[in-house]
């Protein structure tokens, strides 16, 4: 059995079936990211693992033991909350020592561990402050410090970066990746941001409406999405979805075809099987995103080029694609291989 094993886990909130039977096996040391649109049940699933929500059906095993009914205090997990949830009446040192004190560690060991964590997180000069005397980024690091001093079996993160501004978010993301490499601790990280998912995860769990849509490494999800939802959720800008009628040699049963923005090539209109009119050109410096209306203006696609473009809105262009890079979907949205 895997280190952390969820077996047909379900959750109801009254009539709302929030988690609809989830099976997942997580290996020791893995960094797993739950990603999906808001309200899909990521936090609920994480909180069920933490023991903060009851598991209505199914079971949860950690390190060979069934912990489905275990009180959170006995699960040996650490969690970083979106709101940080620091103890407002304690200093940074006290916040980070709390769990160790409860675990009856000696004060010398506590001191050592807190100082180590503070050094790693650049918090040494703030140890005597209370949370309200810290900036958002510093609070965030205290929350992480509170988790890492304990060396728990699993780290849980619930959207830990969503309260930070963009610059700090990027920086902290790198720090978390660095910490994970250093500590090699099993981690489960919840986010709705697919960039965080792709950059941090060993494996990504894509969720929608209480079910898992696909589990895989970031590149597997990008290259081989199992269905239309994953195909469109992973990747920025989203994969273009076109009707199969535009593709003569699509497999039987195909209703829609997906093409990533970078798998189009822009060519002269008279040589192309598909033409369109440019709606907008976004020049980002390192790449150019061209929005093109096709099918008599009824649909818009986005094309990504890694060079600069002389094209202007209103111009007609032709589109060409790499046939091996196409994704074929049936009427259920499942991929046809």
């Amino acid at each position: 059995m895997a280190f952390l094993h969820l077996n047909k886990v379900e959750k109801y909130y009254g009539n709302v079936h929030a988690i609809k039977g989830i099976d997942l096996a997580i290996e020791k040391g893995e960094f797993i990211v739950f990603v999906g649109p808001s309200g899909c049940g990521k936090s609920t699933l994480l909180r069920m693992i933490a023991g903060l929500e009851e598991i209505d059906k199914g079971s949860l095993h950690l390190d060979g033991k069934d912990i489905s009914q275990t009180h959170p205090s006995k699960r040996d997990l650490a969690m970083v909350f979106q709101s940080y949830a620091l103890y407002p009446h304690m200093t940074v040192t006290e916040n980070m020592s709390f769990a160790l004190k409860l675990a009856k560690e000696s004060s010398a060991v506590i001191k050592q561990k807190v100082n180590d964590a503070a050094e790693k997180l650049d918090l040494t000069q703030y140890l005597d402050r209370t949370p309200k005397e810290l900036s958002g980024g510093q609070r965030q690091r205290v929350a992480i410090g509170r988790a890492i001093v304990r060396s728990p079996k699993v780290f849980l993160f619930d959207e830990p970066l969503s309260n930070l501004d963009a610059a700090l978010r990027g920086q902290t993301r790198v720090e978390i990746a660095h910490l994970h490499r250093e500590l090699e601790a099993t981690s489960i990280y919840v986010t709705h941001d697919q960039v965080e998912a792709m950059t941090l995860a060993d494996r990504v769990v894509v969720m929608q409406a209480g079910v898992i849509e696909q589990v895989g490494t970031p590149m597997e999800l990008y290259d081989y999405p199992a269905n239309k939802f994953v195909a469109q959720f992973i990747g920025m800008p989203s994969m273009n979805i076109l009707p199969s009628t535009l593709f003569r040699d699509a497999p039987y049963h195909t209703t829609e075809v997906g093409i990533r923005p970078e798998h189009f090539k822009l060519i002269a209109p008279d040589q192309a099987q598909l033409t369109g009119e440019i709606e907008m050109v976004e020049a980002l410096g390192n790449e150019t995103l061209t929005h093109i209306n096709i099918n008599d203006q009824s649909q818009q696609i986005i094309v990504r080029q890694h060079q600069r473009s002389q094209l202007k809105p209103g111009q007609k262009v032709g589109l060409q694609w790499d046939t091996p890079k196409l994704h074929y979907f049936d009427d259920q949205g499942l991929v046809i291989r």
């Binding site: 903060l52 959170p72 205090s73 006995k74 909350f81 103890y87 409860l102 675990a103």
Partner: peptide, 13 residues
Amino acid sequence: PFEIIEAARIDGA
């Protein structure tokens, strides 16, 4: 905030 109490529970309280 209830999360403070939840944090304490996870911390082993």
